[in-house]
Write a protein that binds this DNA or RNA. Structure first.
Length: 479
RNA sequence: GCGAGUGUAGCUCAGCUGGUAGAGCAUCAGCCUUCCAAGCUGAGGGUCGCGCGUUCGAAUCGCGUCACUCGCUCCA
């Protein structure tokens, strides 16, 4: 049943103003979406919850907002330039695409030798021979296709020699040029992760805030990845928002800290975002699937309509990044513990989550078809609901609209409300059920006599009669 | 990336074998007044994703392209 929900959620998102396809009047842009009036509220609520949980709730975690564009050497140090500029080739016969270095590693040595001779590469004592060939092919673009084919490079899928296209580079990072002309300017990349902004600033942050290890730096911001495949609605987009907290610990405490954060982060999903534990699980990366920087890595996965998908990564990044930056920048990146008189590179435990994925997860979790009452309800936790209450006059006459409007104006100071007098009262409730509004407040003729209203709860549809001045208290108690 | 499918009003969809578009819901205005949608009247809104082609004539056929969904694949 759950498997069929994504279409319904996409439709609801558009209908109610959560998410719109971007550039729709021009036919759309792949994997690009806009957040509508309700969507922006929901997204903001999720990130605010996260921020509060990850900064304010801890004495030793502070925030940061670093730049999207940074010195290009940062990406050299991080490994993004080296690791994600892999030359690729396609087999024209079956349209399979391969990373050339991967492809070569599966070939017999005489094939490799033939290529080396053709390209005049010295293959002796060369550990990076596959990568070297790949990059040579790329720089010699035009002849790369014939070289691979003539050497007899076999397509592992078909088992026969492929008809290879010239080497092509797919850049993970979006590149642009800073400066007035392409020639004089530097290549600038849009950050593919927010983490590096934290690493390069960590000593300044530590110093200005007088922090002692262990401490954390949290950041929310956009990152950009030129994904080849982008799918599943807003699950994987080229432009996305990360919420990361990098926790700096003593190298001997990494395992312990990892366990701590795994627990804390899972709790966030269960107790703050209202996710059912059945729909969450940890997935540990296997050794060979680990990122170039990581020692150990867990994902928190959610059971989306399209299957289990990663919503958060909790990784032990070790001291890889800090040492890399130290090597490349020449600046000392060590932390000095004055009490222990010890100087070291802290290990970094990263909790990195995708805000857009949490958004989708929250919607999937909240979406409920109440067949008994023939309605669709978004059972969002109160804190996440874009609109907290709808204020309705029972009928559009006898001074009820005026009275309701004044109640609306008062309550709207306190929390986000909406006023609605259009259509039957049931219809108005149902409209808000779909938007996830937890409370409906209705004024009727009795209100004019004793200042009481009916308050109706979204999930249970239960109605209670209370005085106007108790609305706020009631909501606080029942949210 | 490969394979399959879809693309007609804001949403869900109908338009069979080619003759320039309909419904329900939604929206808006008016009536009704009723605490759990779908009562009455009326209105706005689409050159049928986009382009090219075939044809006297295309939403309907062909090709291309863009976008989305599903299955594999991939995902630092």
């Amino acid at each position: 049943m759950k498997k069929q929900h994504l279409d319904k959620i996409i439709s609801l998102c558009k209908r109610k103003g959560f998410v719109f396809p971007n550039s729709e009047i021009y036919g759309g842009l792949k994997a690009s979406y806009d957040y509508g009036p309700l969507g922006v509220e929901l997204k903001k609520s999720i990130s605010e919850l996260w921020w509060k949980e990850m900064t304010q709730s801890h004495q030793n975690i502070v925030g940061l907002d670093s730049a999207i564009m940074v010195h290009p050497d940062v990406w050299d140090a991080s490994g993004h330039i080296a690791n994600f500029n892999d030359p690729m080739t396609d087999n024209k016969d079956n349209k399979k695409r391969y990373r050339i270095d991967d492809l070569l590693s599966q070939q017999k040595s005489k094939v490799i030798d033939a290529i080396c001779i053709a390209l005049k590469i010295d293959s002796t004592n060369n550990d990076d021979i596959y990568s070297d060939i790949a990059h040579t092919l790329l720089s010699d673009g035009s002849k790369s296709d014939s070289v691979l084919e003539e050497a007899g490079v076999i397509d592992p899928f078909s088992g026969s020699i492929g008809k290879w296209t010239p080497a092509v580079q797919f850049n993970l990072m979006f590149k642009t040029d800073a400066g007035p002309s392409e020639k004089t300017g530097k290549h600038i990349y849009l950050r593919p992760e927010t983490a590096q902004g934290i690493f390069i600033n960590y000593l300044l942050v530590q110093n200005t805030m007088r922090l002692k290890v262990p401490f954390g730096i949290a950041q929310i911001g956009k990152a950009f990845r030129n994904e080849i495949v982008a799918r599943n609605f807003i699950f994987r987009t080229r432009e996305f928002e990360q919420m990361e907290m990098q926790y700096f610990v003593h190298p001997s405490k990494d395992v312990e800290s990892m366990e701590l954060w795994k627990e804390k982060r899972l709790d966030f999903y269960l107790n703050h975002l209202g996710i059912n534990s059945e729909n969450l699980k940890f997935h540990q990366h296997s050794k060979d699937a680990l990122a170039h920087y990581a020692k150990d890595a867990y994902d928190i996965e959610y059971n989306f309509p399209f299957g289990w998908g990663e919503v958060e990564g909790i990784h032990n990044r070790t001291d890889f990044d800090l040492k890399q930056h130290e090597n490349l920048s020449g600046k000392n990146m060590t932390y000095f513990d004055t009490k222990a008189q010890e100087k070291y590179h802290p290990f970094i435990i990263e909790t990195s989550t995708g805000l857009n994925r949490l958004f989708l997860m929250v919607l999937c979790e909240a979406y409920f078809e109440d067949t008994e009452n023939n309605r669709v309800v978004l059972q969002l936790p109160y804190e996440l609901a874009p609109i907290k209450a709808v204020i309705c006059p029972l009928v559009k006459k006898d001074g009820l609209p005026e009275k309701a409007m004044s109640v609306f104006k008062t309550l709207n100071q306190e929390f986000s409300c909406i006023y609605d007098e259009q259509g039957s009262i049931g219809k108005r409730y149902y409209r808000q059920d779909e938007a996830g509004t937890p409370f409906g407040i209705t004024l009727d003729h009795q209100t004019l006599e004793d200042n009481s209203v009916t308050i109706r709860e979204r999930d249970s549809m239960k109605q209670t009669r209370i005085p106007i001045d108790k609305i706020s208290t009631f909501i606080q108690d029942n949210k």
